[in-house]
């Protein structure tokens, strides 16, 4: 089995005649936390839709834990956990019911699911709330439930599409900390799209994307060195020419 959790090679994508992704090539290794940074319209969400197979691609450009998303989609998707930008929980169901539904879709028996639900919710301090209806939860708690859900089937790669937008500082910090711990201790690989650069730690990988192209790739220090800047935000503006956008 490949040690690469995600391999994207020469990925192009167009909406009709309008090309939005150009020759994207990058890898994420097991246990690595990678951040996808880029201004609005850079192509981040399109890339996520391709990795999750909501959009199709013409060639075999994406491999997830060694499985090609086009030719072996079911094996690849079984190794993927996703938290979408918009909340995708059923607001009228309880936390537990939402998680049981997801477990069923992943082929996990209700008995095993209950054990996994307890494990995941306890790690995120949400177990006490398992019987609450999602509509009654605040934004931070809903996000935690979505993260618990994305991790229930023990994926190799976790995709996070701006999961902390709109959350208070404490909720953001708790999610950032939890995800980094998972990478370190469980070998989970993460691809995290964000605008919030303080979520990136020194050891994380950054993929800077702008107008559908990768502008830079490396650690925080690499990017700052490359652009002769002292802050990641400065490096971002320099690479994307997006100051004031």
């Amino acid at each position: 089995m490949s040690e690469q959790a995600l391999e994207v090679s020469e990925l192009n994508f167009s909406y009709g005649k309008k090309q939005v992704l150009y020759d994207l090539t990058f890898q994420i290794e097991k246990g690595q936390c990678a951040f996808l940074l880029g201004p609005n319209g850079a192509g981040k969400s399109t890339l996520f839709s391709l990795i999750t197979r909501l959009y199709d691609q013409d060639k075999n450009n994406i491999k997830l834990a060694g499985f090609d998303i086009k030719t072996q989609p079911l094996k690849a998707l079984a190794r993927l956990g996703v938290v979408f930008q918009q909340t995708t929980l059923d607001l009228d169901l309880s936390v537990k019911q939402n998680l049981l539904y997801h477990a069923a879709l992943q082929g996990i028996s209700p008995k095993k699911a209950k054990v996994l639900i307890q494990q995941q919710l306890e790690q995120l301090d949400m177990f006490e709330r398992q019987n609450e209806v999602v509509r009654q939860l605040n934004g931070g708690h809903r996000r935690r439930v979505e993260i618990a859900r994305a991790l229930m089937h023990q994926p190799k790669l976790l995709l996070l599409d701006e999961p902390t937008v709109g959350l208070d500082i404490a909720s953001r910090e708790s999610i950032v900390k939890h995800v980094h711990q998972l990478c370190e201790h469980t070998g989970l690989a993460v691809l995290w799209a964000t605008h919030l650069m303080d979520e990136v730690l020194d050891k994380d990988k950054i993929i800077m994307i702008h107008q559908g192209k990768i502008r830079a790739e490396g650690s925080r220090d690499d990017l700052m060195q490359q652009t002769s800047t002292e802050l990641l935000s400065e490096a971002f503006f320099s690479l994307t020419n997006s100051r004031g956008e």
Partner: peptide, 11 residues
Amino acid sequence: MGSMRILLVSP
């Protein structure tokens, strides 16, 4: 609302 995605992303 997005919840269709959870269904379509399942293996």
